[in-house]
Nucleic acid binder design. Structure first.
Lengths: 134, 134
DNA sequence: TATACTGTATTAAGTAGCTAATACAGTAAT
DNA sequence: ATTACTGTATTAGCTACTTAATACAGTATA
């Protein structure tokens, strides 16, 4: 597991941790039941206070993505695949809802909005693919 | 001009003011050159400090959406139509960018994402049309 | 000039959020 | 029990942001 923190981005550390771990679990880079780095280990790696990591882990547990066992460690939760698909779709839908509302309010036609989305999708998709050639 | 403030939403008052006025200008509900409520008038209506409104107005001026004239009042700026179109597209693009990144990260195919957007668009579009029968 | 409106610069108080220090609590193996 | 790991509750300090109080400044009109 590799995480990177940008201390100057303005985004709180614990949120950066959450987003990256959530991303890894959703993308299947972290397997079910797999143990994650301990609070202190990750805190040392990121030069951050252990409580900051603990807070991130706690919120990930609320999301149902990890399971904390005091005295033992932290593990990627066993998320049923169909539930994972459902969760991902819901997260995306929330963002798309905002986009749809905005487009309608601004009188931007559906076709135009779809084209914009497609163009952006391809942009980030190609970046991801080229980066994965390592 | 009618604004509504939710004091319990967690969204700062001045931001709510900005968003609603920006929305009204972009949607064409506020005409070019039209005078807006004075700082103190709007502040009284919303039960808020005048400086809070002044701050919102100042930021709207930075966006180029309004023009402040000390001693006179605040007016909807004369925005060239093509510039308005451009601005609207940019605002929408920022939201769609988030959606695209999320979809790619989650491995949700482009087709699926576009369908979700189309469905949501139609949902809100029909609502708007039916509401405009007043 | 006087008045009655406009908007505003400065300052301060209040609040919420983030991070960290400390001391504590659970687990497993010896 | 001891050791050496796990995670955590409490507390406190810091910072950034938001809001408000006050006094000030520009404009138009009589």
């Amino acid at each position: 597991m590799l995480l990177e923190i940008d201390h100057h981005s303005g985004v709180p550390i614990y949120r950066q941790v959450i987003e990256q771990i959530r991303q890894q679990i959703m993308a299947g880079q972290l397997s079910e039941g797999e143990q994650l780095m301990s609070v202190r280990e990750l805190a040392a790696q990121l030069h951050v206070n252990p409580m900051t990591i603990s807070k991130a882990y706690a919120l990930l547990e609320v999301e149902g993505l990890v399971e904390r066992r005091r005295g033992v460690g932290l593990f990627a939760a066993r998320v049923r695949k169909d539930k994972k698909v459902h969760t991902k779709a819901k997260l995306l839908e929330e963002i798309l809802r905002k986009a749809a509302v905005t487009a309608v309010q601004f009188g931007i036609p559906e076709e135009k909005a779809r084209e914009m989305l497609a163009k952006l999708y391809r942009k980030y998709d190609s970046r991801t693919r080229s980066h994965s050639n390592e």
